[in-house]
Amino acid sequence: MQVWYAGYGSNLSRSRFLCYLTGGRPEGASRTYPGARDQSPPQDDRALTLPGEMVFAWDSPTWGGGVAFYDADTPGVTLARAYLVTEQQFADVAAQEMHRAPGVDLDLTQVLHEARHRLGPGRYESLHLVGELEGAPVLTFTTPNLAALQRSSPTAAYLRAIVAGLREAHHLSDEALVTYLLGRPGIAPAWDAASLAELVSEPTRR
């Protein structure tokens, strides 16, 4: 079965997401990923808008600051990017997000029937069915208990990955990027309009 994986944080960036499939270390991160059993690239990817709010929280050992979580229960708009992958690839991506070794398939029966499935207590162990695209389910994952995580500002490296992905998928202007990021809970106090404008105006990294 094919599924769409909806990334809303650093996985908005295609090059960062591919580290989950082919292995490698994203720019600015401290962790090297083993990759998936099937290292084929996504068969497609699309810009997507999810109902709900993206927030920055926790203190990631990979990025050194807050990272993105999806709150489906709070009104808002979350900009995402959907990648068309196999069910096995999705399981391996989820495993690496959960700091587990890839190689174990997931049973998606519950999330496909009930829209949510809590796999465990970890930061990204709650599966969400967020829609359907061209007949295939759109899935993402987030924390099962966002209230338990303290809001925390992201690092510049993490934000650069998000900015790159938002440019690639949603073609946002600098002004729109600042407006979107400034409205995310957890972005302050480390970031304000001026510092975000400086970051998004940086020359594109090659």
Rank of each mutant, 00 (worst) to 15 (best):
W58H: 12
S40D: 07
T143N: 09
P154V: 04
L50M: 08
A197P: 09
A161Y: 06
S13P: 01
T74L: 13
Y5E: 15
D192T: 03
E132H: 12
G122R: 13
L21Q: 01
P42S: 00
M54I: 10
L159W: 10
V67D: 04
P189C: 08
G186F: 01
G131R: 07
W58N: 10
E202R: 15
A148V: 06
R123V: 15
E168P: 02
L108Q: 03
E175K: 06
L159D: 00
S201H: 01
D73Y: 10
S40A: 14
D192L: 10
L112I: 05
G66H: 04
G186W: 08
T62Q: 11
A47E: 08
H113V: 13
P41C: 00
A161H: 11
I187A: 07
D59Y: 12
A156V: 08
P137E: 04
L112D: 01
L48P: 01
V200Q: 03
I162E: 01
L127R: 07
I162N: 06
E132S: 05
A47W: 04
D71C: 12
T140Y: 02
H171S: 13
T49Y: 13
L48G: 06
G66E: 01
P42N: 07
R16I: 05
A115C: 05
T22A: 13
L106T: 08
L18E: 02
G35I: 15
D59Q: 10
A68H: 07
E134Y: 14
R118N: 15
R151K: 12
A161N: 12
F141K: 10
P61E: 05
R81G: 03
P51F: 15
L106K: 05
G65H: 12
D38T: 00
R184Q: 04
L172E: 09
L119G: 14
I162M: 08
H117P: 10
L199E: 08
Y124T: 03
S195R: 04
A57L: 03
W191L: 05
R151V: 08
A188K: 08
D105W: 12
L199I: 09
L119T: 14
E202N: 14
L18F: 05
Y70K: 02
A197F: 06
E27M: 14
T22E: 09
L146G: 13
L79R: 07
T32C: 09
R123W: 15
T49K: 11
M1Y: 13
S10V: 07
T74C: 15
A94W: 02
L18P: 03
S15A: 14
Y70A: 01
C19M: 07
E134K: 13
L199R: 06
F69I: 03
Y83T: 01
A193Q: 04
S152M: 10
V163A: 06
D92A: 03
A36R: 11
Y8F: 13
L21P: 00
L108S: 02
R151Q: 09
G9Q: 05
W191R: 09
L18W: 06
D45F: 05
A147G: 00
